[in-house]
Simulated assay, not measured.
Amino acid sequence: MKKKQAANYLEYIPVHNPATEFTQDSAGIITLKKEWTGFYSRIAQKFFHKPRFSKIALDGYGSFIWKSIDGCKDVYALSKELDEAFPDMEKSLPRLIKFLEILRDHQFIMWKDQTH
């Protein structure tokens, strides 16, 4: 039996999805724009008056990470920058990885040169 290799997120390089629209306010907070498409989303929009677009405001940590993603830094480098900027943050690496997974799941970022 083949064993499934564990993902080494420290080597992954996140890049912004070019289709993702975002804005930055005067305080440096990033707001991402998400369009809801698909059959069930259209039903929810038509019958339950759900919006076609959602605006997701990131917190200070998320905004810092979003602005730090440049397509060259891997997750390890991002974690070091996060530790320097927020030295009192607990469990910064697991939080960073979870945040990046959520961004990827919602197609706000992709992994560079990977098919994950």
Rank of each mutant, 00 (worst) to 15 (best):
S26Q: 11
F22R: 01
W36A: 12
K91R: 11
K91Y: 08
R95H: 11
S92D: 07
K55W: 04
T31W: 00
F39M: 10
I97K: 05
I109N: 05
L93V: 15
T31G: 00
K67C: 09
I43A: 00
V75R: 09
I109V: 13
L100D: 01
H49K: 08
E81D: 12
E11M: 14
P87Y: 03
D70W: 03
K33F: 07
D25E: 07
H116K: 12
F64P: 06
S63G: 08
Y61D: 07
L32W: 02
A7K: 15
K50W: 01
E35S: 14
I56L: 14
K98G: 06
A77R: 14
G71D: 09
I13W: 09
I109S: 04
I30A: 02
L82V: 08
D59N: 15
K50S: 05
T20D: 00
P94I: 11
I102G: 05
G28H: 02
I30K: 00
K67N: 14
E21A: 13
S79L: 06
K67Y: 01
V15L: 09
L32A: 05
K112Y: 06
A7P: 07
K4R: 13
S26M: 04
A44E: 03
K55N: 12
E90P: 00
E101L: 15
F108C: 03
F47E: 06
F22V: 01
D88W: 05
T115V: 10
L103H: 00
Q107D: 15
